[in-house]
Amino acid sequence: MSEKPEPVDYTYTPIGTIHSPFKDIVGMPIQPTGARGIRGTIEIRSDLKGGLADLERFSRIILLYSLHRCTGYSLKVSPFLDPTPHGIFATRSPKRPNAIGFSIVRLVGIDDCTLTIEDVDILDGTPLLDIKPYVPAFDSYPDERSGWLGAVAHNAQHAKSDDRFQ
């Protein structure tokens, strides 16, 4: 019988800060599809500027960030699009054991250490952990099952956040 490994704590240093028009969680779009055309910026740390080389050649980027305003977590939640409780790992709820969020946004431009982005569904001042290029050939699987979200995902375009996950 194998022993259960001890949990390891990880520390991440933000690579920058995401800025958006959303100063409060209440009323924010819940997914980038509901934030079409909403602009924001990302300020990348100056010591990491070299890592932006060639990024301008991508039209979309994946942002991984800290859900820094969330406290605690729940293993079952009633997400924004369905009043039925679901296991946290079957949702995109921010109340997670590791409060890490991700969004796929449009990259509008890069000026020095500032990225201009669109389709922003992220709270102003959010610490950015990483950027990855979005590659349709790698990241898009449109014919796959999407569980309970399949019946309600189209509602994300109009749904707004409330205070249930603060």
Rank of each mutant, 00 (worst) to 15 (best):
residue 42 I to G: 09
residue 160 K to E: 10
residue 125 G to F: 04
residue 43 E to D: 14
residue 124 D to G: 11
residue 90 A to E: 15
residue 100 I to P: 03
residue 55 L to M: 12
residue 47 D to T: 04
residue 118 E to W: 08
residue 164 R to E: 10
residue 157 Q to I: 14
residue 148 W to H: 11
residue 81 L to R: 05
residue 1 M to P: 12
residue 127 P to I: 06
residue 139 D to V: 05
residue 107 L to V: 00
residue 91 T to D: 09
residue 110 I to R: 10
residue 55 L to N: 00
residue 62 I to P: 01
residue 14 P to V: 00
residue 132 K to F: 01
residue 129 L to I: 03
residue 5 P to E: 04
residue 133 P to G: 10
residue 157 Q to M: 14
residue 155 N to Q: 15
residue 42 I to V: 11
residue 163 D to V: 04
residue 111 D to I: 04
residue 73 Y to H: 15
residue 91 T to L: 06
residue 152 V to A: 03
residue 42 I to P: 05
residue 163 D to R: 13
residue 51 G to I: 00
residue 132 K to N: 00
residue 148 W to K: 09
residue 120 V to L: 07
residue 124 D to K: 07
residue 94 P to V: 07
residue 154 H to R: 13
residue 159 A to E: 14
residue 125 G to P: 03
residue 103 S to D: 05
residue 129 L to K: 01
residue 146 S to H: 14
residue 70 C to P: 01
residue 76 K to V: 10
residue 72 G to P: 07
residue 143 D to G: 15
residue 93 S to G: 06
residue 8 V to S: 02
residue 12 Y to C: 01
residue 97 P to M: 09
residue 96 R to M: 05
residue 131 I to Y: 00
residue 15 I to F: 02
residue 83 P to E: 11
residue 82 D to T: 02
residue 101 G to A: 05
residue 103 S to Q: 09
residue 61 I to V: 12
residue 157 Q to C: 10
residue 123 L to N: 09
residue 135 V to H: 02
residue 127 P to V: 07
residue 41 T to P: 00
residue 64 L to T: 04
residue 95 K to V: 11
residue 45 R to H: 12
residue 146 S to M: 15
residue 97 P to Y: 05
residue 143 D to N: 14
residue 163 D to P: 04
residue 101 G to E: 02
residue 56 E to V: 05
residue 123 L to F: 11
residue 100 I to Y: 02
residue 155 N to A: 14
residue 34 G to E: 09
residue 129 L to F: 03
residue 141 Y to H: 15
residue 94 P to T: 09
residue 6 E to D: 12
residue 123 L to V: 08
residue 82 D to N: 13
residue 153 A to M: 14
residue 134 Y to K: 11
residue 134 Y to R: 04
residue 85 P to I: 08
residue 138 F to Y: 13
residue 72 G to Y: 07
residue 85 P to R: 11
residue 6 E to N: 11
residue 91 T to K: 07
residue 84 T to Y: 02
residue 51 G to H: 06
residue 84 T to L: 06
residue 120 V to D: 07
residue 77 V to W: 06
residue 27 G to Q: 08
residue 46 S to N: 09
residue 56 E to S: 15
residue 136 P to H: 08
residue 125 G to D: 06
residue 13 T to K: 14
residue 19 H to V: 00
residue 119 D to P: 03
residue 94 P to E: 07
residue 6 E to H: 05
residue 121 D to R: 12
residue 162 D to G: 08
residue 30 I to V: 15
residue 2 S to M: 13
residue 105 V to E: 01
residue 103 S to L: 06
residue 116 T to D: 06
residue 65 Y to S: 03
residue 23 K to T: 12
residue 55 L to T: 00
residue 87 G to Q: 04
residue 104 I to S: 08
residue 32 P to C: 06
residue 65 Y to N: 02
residue 162 D to Y: 05
residue 99 A to T: 09
residue 138 F to P: 00
residue 30 I to N: 02
residue 92 R to I: 09
residue 22 F to N: 04
residue 59 S to P: 01
residue 58 F to I: 11
residue 7 P to V: 03
residue 104 I to Y: 00
residue 36 R to S: 08
residue 56 E to L: 09
residue 86 H to P: 11
residue 138 F to V: 14
residue 63 L to R: 05
residue 102 F to K: 09
residue 104 I to R: 01
residue 90 A to P: 07
residue 116 T to K: 12
residue 6 E to F: 01
residue 5 P to R: 11
residue 155 N to W: 07
residue 90 A to F: 07
